[in-house]
Design a protein around this nucleic acid. Sequence first.
DNA 1: CCTAGTATGTTATTACATAACACTACCTAC
DNA 2: GTAGGTAGTGTTATGTAATAACATACTAGG
Lengths: 144, 144
Amino acid sequence: MHDLIRQAEALCQRSGMAFTAPRRRVLEILAASETPMKAYDLISKAGEGGQATKPPTVYRALDFLCQLGLVHRIEQDATFVACNHAGHSHPMALFVCNTCLKATEVAYDEVVPILEKAAEVQGFHLTRLVVEGRGQCRDCALAA
Amino acid sequence: MHDLIRQAEALCQRSGMAFTAPRRRVLEILAASETPMKAYDLISKAGEGGQATKPPTVYRALDFLCQLGLVHRIEQDATFVACNHAGHSHPMALFVCNTCLKATEVAYDEVVPILEKAAEVQGFHLTRLVVEGRGQCRDCALAA
DNA sequence: CCTAGTATGTTATTACATAACACTACCTAC
DNA sequence: GTAGGTAGTGTTATGTAATAACATACTAGG
């Protein structure tokens, strides 16, 4: 799991950005979590042990990590998850299991041009795309 | 614009659901709005004139209208928009213009099987799909 | 040094959403 | 017709998500 932290360090170094304590802390917590986390769970977790951590600190760290593609925000339910495929920035869909709540990342490169074309027909030029889903993951399907 | 209201009435009648006053009110306000609305703008708008309207009333109406497909929730920014293509339930992507904030609905039937297949490869069975975008609409592109 | 840029700390507030319970209207089975 | 269920609304209170605004600290370049 500490691969992610090392990747983050490297990524920041290359782009001349600071991988500061709160950013590291937030990423560590997310990387250790099996499931996507809500912001306020993250805030209280980050505050455990050391000094109290306030919302802006965590939200700023999250913004930073999201921009780097190390963390994704799941719009459906306002949760955050560490990215398994850090570094590169493939378009990735996030599918969340209704049972175990784990998130699965799925590449959707194929559909991007289709959606872009469908939008363009109506004169709409896409700059950002959000693809998310809900359903049942393999493990939970087998368990049932 | 009152087409939508009439459609809603018909739809409710057919399914034996009540198209009550708060539901009608919320739908009217959304139908009259050029752009998607935030929940609390809706709440204060609904409260204008008559009696005060509280959050639960509006949220309940929104849940109801969303289930019927008469209204869509835009997850990216927690706004709500009346559906232009009411009644049927095609999968529809919502693309929001960064400039004028209007929402454009785009059918994405084609991409559903692709995403389903991509998910299935990882053993994930999709039950719900959210596709949203940001960008620039035709009018704003021409104006620029 | 000192100052411009970047990031964090802190307080307060705004915005989004729902839990819980009381009440009403309507319908239907007896 | 009346008891009891169902569906919906009204109301209070609270929980949860996110940011504004301003003060403070760290660091690199002149």
